[in-house]
Measured scan of single mutants.
Amino acid sequence: RKEMTAACTPRRRIINLTSVLSLQEEINEQGHEVLREMLHNHSFVGCVNPQWALAQHQTKLYLLNTTKLSEELFYQILIYDFANFGVLRLSEPAPLFDLAMLALDSPESGWTEEDGPKEGLAEYIVEFLKKKAEMLADYFSLEIDEEGNLIGLPLLIDNYVPPLEGLPIFILRLATEVNWDEEKECFESLSKECAMFYSIRKQYISEESTLSGQQSEVPGSIPNSWKWTVEHIVYKALRSHILPPKHFTEDGNILQLANLPDLYKVFERC
């Protein structure tokens, strides 16, 4: 597991931080080997919608929660590849102030007048994250320049770009939802926020969305749709870069829909 690298990086740093090793061990302890084997050997059937997909393993048909699986995938990559990410360069710098204002204007932020003026909160978020810029760049390849612009994001899987519609809320939550006081809790909560931002979430995906850094293989055609990215990038990574937690067998994120021999018997009677 320590050699797990989802995106190509030129050289690998050895990380011996106790906090990170502890988080890696927790993933191992909570892992479910049968689910790992199923995901490793599954045959992708198709997307139901951005949140759900169908896959077959041996004779069984499964309904998989793409949102939760991708979130767990990105969390584990962030923990196992800690401080070893490439950088996704933004085509132009994104001012943190503008991103924070967009987030505060969104109902998702939960902002009320009692929280104070949005401009003041946005300025605080910019200054707060600028103070964390060195650590964010060093460990997470999340790059913020001296003017308070976001200029780079971590490359977690080759050819995958997170849904940038979720970027404003991500920046807001970096400042408000991460435990910045304790090292282990900081790395864990920061990785979880980043994983949620990178995950496939239906509120940020339309039929026209593209999450891939590449064009489709047909010359002159439109960019790959999110469905292509889910199948050929995300579920491909799920084959080798995730140890599913045991609770996925109990919380409805992986559901067995049918045993195909039983279905064949039904059709034979028709």
Rank of each mutant, 00 (worst) to 15 (best):
R1W: 15
K2S: 14
K2Y: 14
K2R: 10
K2V: 12
E3C: 11
M4G: 11
M4A: 09
A6D: 11
A7L: 12
A7G: 13
C8F: 06
C8T: 08
C8M: 09
C8L: 11
T9F: 11
T9R: 08
P10M: 12
R11P: 14
R11A: 12
R11Q: 13
R12L: 11
R12W: 14
R12P: 10
R12F: 13
R13W: 15
R13M: 13
I14V: 05
I15G: 08
N16P: 11
N16R: 12
L17D: 07
L17I: 03
T18C: 12
S19V: 12
V20N: 07
V20D: 15
L21F: 05
L21C: 07
Q24K: 04
Q24H: 13
Q24Y: 10
E25A: 10
E26T: 05
E26Y: 13
E26V: 06
N28R: 07
E29H: 11
E29G: 05
E29Q: 11
Q30S: 08
E33N: 11
E33S: 13
V34T: 08
L35G: 11
R36F: 15
R36G: 13
E37G: 10
E37C: 12
M38F: 14
M38W: 15
L39V: 13
H40W: 13
N41V: 10
N41T: 10
N41C: 07
N41I: 14
H42Q: 08
F44P: 01
V45E: 07
V45S: 12
V45K: 02
G46H: 04
G46R: 01
G46L: 02
G46Y: 01
C47I: 04
C47K: 01
V48C: 08
P50L: 04
P50C: 04
Q51E: 10
W52F: 06
W52E: 11
A53D: 00
A53W: 01
L54W: 05
L54D: 00
Q56L: 02
Q56D: 12
Q56R: 04
H57K: 11
H57F: 08
H57M: 04
Q58R: 10
Q58C: 11
T59G: 03
T59Q: 04
T59R: 03
T59A: 07
T59W: 15
L61S: 02
Y62C: 15
L63G: 11
L63T: 13
L64E: 01
L64I: 08
N65Y: 01
T66I: 12
T67K: 12
T67E: 06
K68C: 11
E71G: 08
E71C: 05
E72A: 10
E72Q: 03
E72V: 08
Y75T: 12
Y75C: 12
Q76V: 02
I77K: 06
Y80V: 03
Y80D: 04
F82C: 01
A83R: 03
A83I: 02
F85E: 11
F85I: 12
G86A: 07
G86N: 06
G86T: 06
V87A: 07
V87D: 11
L88S: 11
R89M: 13
R89H: 08
L90T: 02
L90P: 07
L90Q: 00
S91C: 10
E92T: 08
P93A: 06
A94D: 01
P95H: 10
L96S: 00
F97S: 02
F97L: 02
D98W: 15
D98M: 08
A100C: 02
A100H: 00
M101L: 10
M101C: 15
M101D: 01
D105R: 03
S106H: 08
P107K: 05
E108T: 04
S109C: 14
S109M: 15
G110S: 01
W111Q: 02
T112G: 08
E114P: 11
E114C: 11
E114D: 09
D115Y: 15
D115P: 15
G116W: 15
G116Q: 02
K118C: 15
G120R: 15
G120I: 15
A122M: 01
A122E: 00
A122H: 01
A122I: 09
E123D: 07
E123L: 15
Y124W: 02
F128Y: 07
L129H: 10
L129Y: 14
K130R: 08
K131M: 13
K131E: 14
K131D: 13
K131T: 12
K131G: 12
K132F: 08
E134W: 06
L136H: 00
L136P: 00
L136A: 05
D138Y: 04
Y139K: 03
S141W: 02
S141R: 07
S141L: 12
L142S: 01
L142R: 01
L142T: 04
E143Q: 04
E143S: 06
D145F: 01
D145C: 08
E146T: 03
E146M: 05
E146V: 08
E147S: 06
E147M: 08
E147Q: 06
G148I: 01
L150K: 00
G152D: 01
L155P: 01
L155F: 07
L155M: 09
L155A: 06
L156M: 10
I157D: 03
N159H: 08
Y160V: 02
Y160W: 07
V161Y: 03
P163T: 06
P163Q: 05
P163M: 05
P163D: 03
P163K: 07
E165S: 05
G166P: 13
G166F: 12
L167H: 00
P168N: 13
I171L: 12
I171Q: 00
I171H: 00
I171M: 05
L172G: 01
L172A: 07
R173E: 01
R173C: 15
L174P: 00
A175S: 07
A175K: 02
A175N: 15
E177G: 03
E177D: 15
V178R: 00
N179T: 04
N179Y: 06
D181M: 10
E182H: 03
E182K: 03
E182A: 04
E183M: 04
K184Q: 08
E185C: 06
E185I: 03
E185Q: 07
C186K: 03
E188H: 09
S189C: 04
S189Y: 05
S189H: 06
S191N: 04
K192D: 09
K192G: 11
C194P: 00
C194K: 00
F197L: 14
Y198V: 00
Y198N: 05
Y198P: 00
I200T: 11
I200P: 12
R201D: 14
Q203F: 13
Q203A: 08
S206E: 04
T210G: 07
S212H: 08
S212K: 09
S212T: 12
S212D: 07
G213E: 09
Q215D: 11
Q215E: 11
Q215F: 12
Q215N: 10
S216H: 09
S216I: 08
S216A: 06
E217V: 05
E217L: 08
E217W: 11
V218N: 05
P219C: 09
I222C: 06
P223R: 06
N224T: 09
S225V: 08
S225K: 05
S225G: 07
K227Y: 05
K227V: 06
K227E: 09
W228V: 09
W228Q: 07
W228L: 10
E231C: 14
H232G: 14
H232Y: 12
V234T: 13
Y235W: 15
K236V: 13
A237I: 03
L238M: 07
L238Y: 11
R239W: 14
H241T: 12
H241A: 10
H241W: 12
I242Y: 13
L243Y: 08
L243V: 06
P244N: 15
P244T: 12
P244I: 10
P245C: 12
P245N: 11
H247V: 11
F248E: 12
F248D: 12
T249Q: 05
E250F: 15
E250P: 08
E250A: 08
E250N: 08
E250R: 12
G252F: 04
G252L: 10
N253V: 03
I254G: 03
I254E: 09
L255Q: 02
L255I: 06
Q256K: 04
Q256P: 03
N259D: 07
L260Q: 04
L260Y: 06
L260G: 08
L260W: 07
L260P: 03
Y264H: 04
Y264M: 03
Y264F: 06
K265I: 15
K265Y: 14
K265F: 14
K265Q: 06
K265W: 15
V266E: 15
V266D: 15
F267C: 06
E268Q: 12
R269P: 14
R269C: 14
